[in-house]
Nucleic acid binder design. Sequence first.
DNA 1: TTCGTCATGTAATGGGTTACATGATTAC
DNA 2: GTAATCATGTAACCCATTACATGACGAA
Lengths: 185, 185
Amino acid sequence: MLEIAVLGLLNESPMHGYELRKRLSSLLGAFRAFSYGSLYPTLRRLADAGWISEEPPIEAAPGTATRSRRGKRVYRLTAEGKEHLAVLLARVGPDAFDDEGFGARLAFFAQTRSEIRLQILEGRRRRVEEQRDGMKSTLARTGERLDRYTRQLHEHGLESVDREVRWLTELIENERSDASPAAEK
Amino acid sequence: MLEIAVLGLLNESPMHGYELRKRLSSLLGAFRAFSYGSLYPTLRRLADAGWISEEPPIEAAPGTATRSRRGKRVYRLTAEGKEHLAVLLARVGPDAFDDEGFGARLAFFAQTRSEIRLQILEGRRRRVEEQRDGMKSTLARTGERLDRYTRQLHEHGLESVDREVRWLTELIENERSDASPAAEK
DNA sequence: TTCGTCATGTAATGGGTTACATGATTAC
DNA sequence: GTAATCATGTAACCCATTACATGACGAA
């Protein structure tokens, strides 16, 4: 997840880690913050994989002079990284349908092909519908016996997923009418 | 979290692990499942701490006969466990206000003093309001520049937290009028 | 007797967080 | 020159998951 988010943001513009973290927070919505303890190791990993470059690079030979030059380090998506990101965004696996994975995909929908967007939206909707139906039947089965608080919790949860289904349906309709502007009067 | 949930469920009735897991899933709402890989070690830990008892107990001396008697093992809340649970449910720390922690508390509100319930509900509301305000200002600040999908994601998120605030307000009002039925005509 | 599901458990791993340590830059 | 904040990084830990292994028991 962090991987997609980092690559996606760096595809918009090069940045250093600190700024990346701030953008990450606002992109993913104030919740879901990511600490430096996971961000920096991830950046190192992505750099090792060749998907991003660091400027200035880590000094391989530690000359006793200028040692531990610790300053801003700007990360930039490489050509391979761009390719890799495209693959990640186009891969419609089960992880694209859970909360985190879907959120990350949606955040970079502008960089995703319309056909893939539709698959992701529909997959997500199916997932949320399953959840909704599960909750609905649990509520129907145990609703009477549940104490007031638990019931209210479940009812609120049910309404939330219900709203999400409707929201997704709207997005899907938009997507479809964008994709085929055939029936345009 | 698992700790509260397990103790809370066992307070309602003794159970074995497998059943506990099912109840856990439906209690916490189909999402949030907990695998055996975390459940059984937790049960072991709680038993070691003396908060729950196992029946039949793990055989201390492994007689070569009847070894590895692997069958149902019923867990039951002990007196110390009951006390510990009461403490956990009454402790209104910051972790009681995040998604998980709040959900776990609410699920056992029936076992919680009204005064504590109110504190938890109000703390949660404050937390969600902060989130909402953060999202609101982010949206106001960056809304125009955001691409359509990201904006829709943020708008949907904002509506969701907004709904949660209203829901919590309702619960708080209920709680208050239950607590002080003074103004009853 | 074999299949499904109930039931318990462990080892390896994962993906993050917290707390800490350090250094660079800017504003006062 | 000093406080705040920008900025990078590591180590220890936590809490869970996945994948696996095992076994009991009832129904066909």
